[in-house]
């Protein structure tokens, strides 16, 4: 079946299977490989993308369900003010090590900060429960978020 949707601001028409995941559609059909597959079961959050602004695990989200919707992936974050700030802060604060979880963290955080521009650290730790980072131990990721928030407040 064909679905028509917007991906990072661009209209796409894609043929998808009935059980196909959004992750498969992004990676294999649209060759947007920035979104990562870590577990395929909604446990690690590496595949997080935004669907109509909501952070979803694209590995367990139906590709067909995106029909008419807007999908934002890590590749589109550079076009977003908040996304760009977060990307820069992750690199500057040591929030990236192997980087495989980074796209999922960034997309999740874009959604979290759009809803609440100044979450506390405990709120952030809770909001990030669905994103696993095996490298950093999270502290420098939280530093990056703090730097993003303070940077945006200064502007």
């Amino acid at each position: 079946m064909d679905v028509t949707l917007t991906v990072n601001g661009r209209r796409e028409q894609v043929e998808v299977g009935p059980a196909e995941t959004l992750l498969g559609m992004l990676r294999e059909r649209l060759r947007l490989t920035g979104t990562k597959e870590g577990c395929n079961e909604g446990e690690c959050g590496a595949c997080t993308v935004l669907v109509d602004g909501l952070p979803v695990d694209s590995c367990i989200y139906s590709a067909a369900a995106t029909s008419g919707r807007s999908v934002e992936t890590v590749e589109g974050l550079a076009d977003d003010d908040l996304g760009r700030d977060l990307q820069a802060a992750f690199v500057a604060a040591g929030g990236v090590q192997c980087g495989f979880c980074t796209p999922g963290f960034l997309t999740t955080l874009v959604a979290v900060l759009r809803e609440n521009p100044e979450p506390s650290e405990p709120e952030l730790r809770e909001a990030l429960a669905g994103n696993i980072c095996r490298c950093t131990g999270y502290s420098q990721i939280l530093d990056a978020v703090a730097a993003t928030i303070s940077g945006r407040n200064r502007r």
Binding site: G42, G45, T48, L54, P55, V56, D57, Y61, T108, A111, V112, A127, L128, A129, G130, N131
Partner: peptide
């Protein structure tokens, strides 16, 4: 129930 990603859908 799961994380934010599971809860929103």
């Amino acid at each position: 129930v799961g994380g934010l990603q599971t809860q929103v859908v």
